[in-house]
């Protein structure tokens, strides 16, 4: 088309129809580039909903915007967030992991059991984290080598692992975990910031770096965008795919560590429905279930949104029966808002 800009052409190569243009090609300003890579375009869309709800809550609940309460919300969103950050990779790759909640429960239980049997605290923690990675590895290998659909594979894993949790625990929580080294993970703080919150920030930073600043992240999203094309440009899909599931398994185990330490008990029914909360957080954040695009900051906002709503319901002492209705509606509204503004944007361009 006549008004489209053209890359500067070498005199020899300039075709008859190209419009000569001063070099170099127009580039978006740096700040915008940073913001868009930080939030992704879709996270930018979910932000207004989040701000609106935060504003509504700070007007209605006096205690909402206090340091104390914000710390609470941060602490409460840690468990889902940590998993959701890793799950952003899986979903961005076009996969899904439904086994994370069960992995969280099982690894927490495993760590607790080892500690109660007198294993060194740090060894027990390490073993639990490795177990999470191992569960992810098995998931990943089954999905990759046998070509099972990730949904079915991790669904089966979820059911099996929940069963293993019941067999392992006999339905009874493991308690008596008052070891101070262990308590530190879930209850300690560094310079006034709770350790779990620091862990969440750290996981976010690592994931952000991996996703946006490394070849690894580029490959993960390329696989999600067009798996066949990714294979044809020579990306080793198998290893990346498996590694992503290892990552979610590991993150689930990390959540298991933080949760168990926070409660000083490993509960068989811990982390029930976490997989759904995780998917909700990732999708609210603007990552497409079809893969290809992922927004880590969006995921963080998604997780925060759900934590904030639950917190708000408690602060306002909203009738029990309404809780689920409100949470579900807010998820729906958040994604509708996102879809609508995406459509408006598409129309405008």
């Amino acid at each position: 088309m006549s008004d489209s800009k053209t890359y500067p052409q070498t005199p020899a190569a300039s075709g008859a129809s190209s419009v000569p243009q001063a070099a170099p090609a127009v580039r978006p300003p740096r700040a915008a580039g940073f913001l868009s890579s930080m939030f992704g375009s879709s996270a930018g869309r979910i932000l207004p909903v989040f701000v609106l709800i935060v504003a509504a809550l700070s007007l209605t609940a006096n205690d909402f915007l206090t340091v104390d309460n914000i710390t609470n919300v941060l602490r409460q969103m840690v468990f889902v967030s940590v998993i959701a950050f890793a799950a952003t990779f899986v979903i961005g790759m076009g996969g899904i992991d439904l086994s994370v909640g069960a992995t969280t429960a099982l690894t927490g239980l495993f760590m607790a059991d080892l500690m109660l049997q007198g294993v060194n605290i740090y060894l027990a923690v390490l073993a639990g984290l490795l177990l999470g990675g191992l569960i992810g590895l098995v998931n990943g290998l089954l999905i990759d080598r046998l070509g099972i659909s990730p949904f079915i594979c991790t669904l089966a894993a979820m059911i099996i692992l929940r069963g293993v949790v019941m067999v392992y625990s006999q339905g009874v929580p493991l308690t008596g975990l008052g070891f101070s080294e262990f308590q530190w993970f879930g209850q300690g703080s560094i310079a006034g910031v709770p350790v779990p919150v620091l862990a969440m920030v750290l996981v976010f930073a690592v994931c952000w770096y991996l996703l946006y600043r490394t070849k690894y992240g580029r490959y993960v999203l390329s696989i999600g965008s067009n798996r066949e094309a990714a294979r044809l440009v020579g990306i080793g899909i198998s290893r990346i795919q498996v590694s992503v599931y290892v990552m979610t398994g590991f993150a689930a185990a990390l959540a298991g560590l933080l949760l168990t330490s926070r409660l000083e008990a490993a509960m068989p029914e811990a982390a029930t429905n976490y997989e759904l909360d995780v998917i909700a957080a990732v999708v609210i954040g603007g990552t497409s279930l079809n893969g290809g695009k992922a927004s880590l900051a969006g995921t963080a906002i998604g997780a925060a949104l759900m934590a904030v709503v639950r917190n708000g319901l408690n602060l306002l002492n909203v009738n029990t029966f309404w809780h689920q209705v409100v949470i579900g509606s807010i998820i729906l509204v958040a994604v509708s808002f996102d879809a609508l503004s995406a459509r408006r944007r598409a129309k405008a361009s």
Binding site: V49, L52, L313, V318, N319, W322, V325, V326, S329, V333
Partner: peptide, 8 residues
């Protein structure tokens, strides 16, 4: 605004 008419 969001949850159509929910009467919490």
């Amino acid at each position: 605004l969001v949850a159509a008419g929910c009467a919490t």
